[in-house]
Design a protein around this nucleic acid. Structure first.
Lengths: 206, 206
DNA sequence: GTGTTACGATACCGTTCGGTACCACGCGAC
DNA sequence: GTCGCGTGGTACCGAACGGTATCGTAACAC
């Protein structure tokens, strides 16, 4: 019973309110088809309600997008915290655990369409858009946490190791979009381990 | 005078035909704002012509998108081939050169919005779309070439090293979209070198 | 000359977009 | 009771979407 990062059926107990149904429908549709590709009519229809309830609950499509991304951000960190909690006081184990589980989830789930927050950065260019702030904050936080784990693990260059792990995660997400098959994701946890080794080995022998 | 992978001003001598102007305008607009965000009217206006010329030359927006991605794919491999040609018979030097120049280009260019082909995979979900084939083919080819370079370089597990390098490239592209600053891209060529080292060192000492 | 080709201009098509106005219903609270 | 309040239904708005039809014309062929 692993968490599934993003496209889980229910974030909350899901009270059957119109707002909640709209929210879940939007989350699923945005993720599967893209934000711009999904109209408010389609969301309302999928939620079994009408556009009016959408605007009563969220004000605008842009605000709905922001609300969905905010929830996905929260969901991601919940998964993250639960995962690293399994290896307390073991930063190396925590990173390895993160990447192992990440690889499993990304590999198993056929409907995985990468990271919904990163995907949004392709479609939302306007720096004033409320969702744009969430995207940048999410990735800055991810990089910060990876660098921090790298530091606590005693890496020679923790910022660089954090960068490397960040690139691996991002690359894995993107690969799930760009390949019909699994693509290079199958190697991500192995490679992460190798990079940790490099940055923690006593000294470069050559 | 490095090539610039994607958003160069001119792919071809740019004869001042309507079709060519439409093509260049579409390439720029799709890359900067996203494919779905740009309408055919905007493309025609930016090209200083009318919608009719767009449809006369390309048939439909979808076909124009495919034509643009096809050109971007070609442009990318031209840059690739030119870059590795500088280190003939030196696969290790070729990969390092690729990643060094890639990092420079991605870092210098403020208008870098990641990889236009990978970005398209976010917006184009339909597997029947002509552009979708190009996206998948481009990434399969990239993975194939990286694995081949890894093999010629004598890596212990060339497929895994190829996967790793692929993830680094993809992650770098994505990072340029998700950070306001440079983000982890600044480490990509260093990390690529480290991974090559790991996969070519005589044997794991531990 | 007469085609042929490419182009610009404009008007138009049906559909969908994000967003709103208005009304009627069922509900629990008081 | 009746008062809100959330809700569903529907009709609607102006704008933009992808795409088409028609006409005129400048450039070039033979």
């Amino acid at each position: 019973m692993t968490a599934d990062l993003f496209n889980l059926s229910a974030v909350e107990p899901a009270p059957d309110t119109a707002g909640e149904r709209i929210f879940q429908a939007a989350r699923e549709l945005f993720y599967q088809q893209g934000i711009r590709a999904v109209g408010v009519d389609a969301i309302a229809a999928a939620a079994g309600t009408t556009k009016m309830s959408l605007y009563r609950n969220f004000g605008s499509k842009d605000q709905l997008v922001a609300a969905v991304l905010e929830a996905q951000d929260r969901l991601f960190w919940e998964w993250w915290d639960e995962t690293i909690a399994r290896c307390p006081d073991d930063p190396r184990g925590q990173i390895e655990c993160l990447f192992r589980e990440f690889e499993t989830i990304a590999s198993d789930d056929d409907s995985c369409r990468g990271c919904p927050i990163a995907n949004a950065s392709v479609e939302i260019v306007d720096t004033d858009h409320p969702a744009r702030r969430i995207v940048v904050r999410h990735h800055q936080e991810m990089l910060r946490r990876l660098r921090e784990l790298a530091a606590r693990l005693g890496a020679r260059d923790p910022d660089e190791l954090g960068d490397a792990l960040m690139l691996l995660m991002g690359g894995s997400f993107l690969s799930r979009l760009c390949f019909d098959d699994l693509g290079p994701v199958r190697s991500v946890s192995d490679v992460a381990r190798q990079l940790i080794d490099v940055h923690t080995r006593a000294a470069s022998p050559a």
